[in-house]
């Protein structure tokens, strides 16, 4: 079938990564928007959460879809990682990277795995948390803790590096590479990860440093 053939080609596999990556990026945008309400007050945040959960059908449908997208992104990523590892192991006795600043691109699978671990922890802590305690309270309790908060911050740094290469790589895979826009794109590869880093990692910091005491 043409569709299977297309998706199993080397470029098809990249397109799966890029497309799922784009959808996950959109998911991050909505998620960060919701979470940003924490900075306003626990009331606003709680009402956002309550509103969201008053439509269980939407939540279930979205969660399921995103579960599949995550699985596709992670599964394909690991598969590519395995395939590439097979090619590159013990290839040259001296390996020199000519391209500078390759940290993000070389660590994609690793930052990805950190994010995966984070995701599991995050889902179990929040999505499946006791429904008796309001979510706004759980957030403050958990993220105010030093190790828990630090784990979150480290994960968001990993996410930033992942996005730093992932965003550009996604556009390249979609075929977006033009001298007129490349400057803007290269700026976005810094701005976008920083944006998420500040907003997301700001939450544990907000509670850890005590700024969120009156929350």
């Amino acid at each position: 079938m043409w569709f299977v053939r297309f998706l199993s080609s080397s470029i098809g596999k990249k397109l799966i990564m890029a497309t799922t990556g784009l959808l996950l990026l959109l998911f991050l945008c909505t998620h960060v928007a919701g979470n940003a309400t924490i900075y306003m007050s626990s009331k606003v945040f709680q009402s956002y959460a309550d509103e969201l959960h008053s439509h269980p059908l939407i939540v279930i449908v979205f969660s399921t879809i995103f579960l599949f997208i995550f699985l596709a992104h992670i599964g394909m990523g690991l598969f590519l990682f395995y395939q590439n590892w097979q090619v590159s192991k013990s290839r040259y006795s001296v390996t020199t990277r000519v391209v500078k600043n390759t940290f993000s691109s070389e660590t994609m699978p690793y930052t990805g795995l950190i994010i995966l671990t984070f995701l599991i922890v995050h889902i179990f802590s929040f999505t499946f948390s006791s429904s008796e305690v309001p979510i706004s309270v759980t957030v403050k309790e958990l993220l105010g803790g030093f190790f828990y908060g630090l784990f979150y911050i480290v994960s968001f740094i990993a996410l930033a590096f992942h996005l730093n290469h992932g965003f550009w790589s996604m556009l390249q895979t979609f075929g977006l590479n033009h001298p007129r826009y490349n400057d803007a794109i290269s700026k976005l590869t810094l701005i976008l990860p920083l944006f998420f880093l500040i907003l997301f990692a700001g939450i544990p910091l907000y509670f850890m440093t005590g700024l969120g005491a009156s929350y």
């Binding site: 080609s9 080397s10 990249k14 590519l80 395939q83 590159s88 391209v99 691109s105 550009w168 790589s169």
Partner: peptide, 18 residues
């Protein structure tokens, strides 16, 4: 051309720019 490229056993591009 892409099908042939894959068949020959070349790897996947990860946009490493090397």
């Amino acid at each position: 051309m892409v099908a042939q490229m894959d068949e020959e056993g070349f790897g996947n591009c990860t946009n490493a720019k090397e």
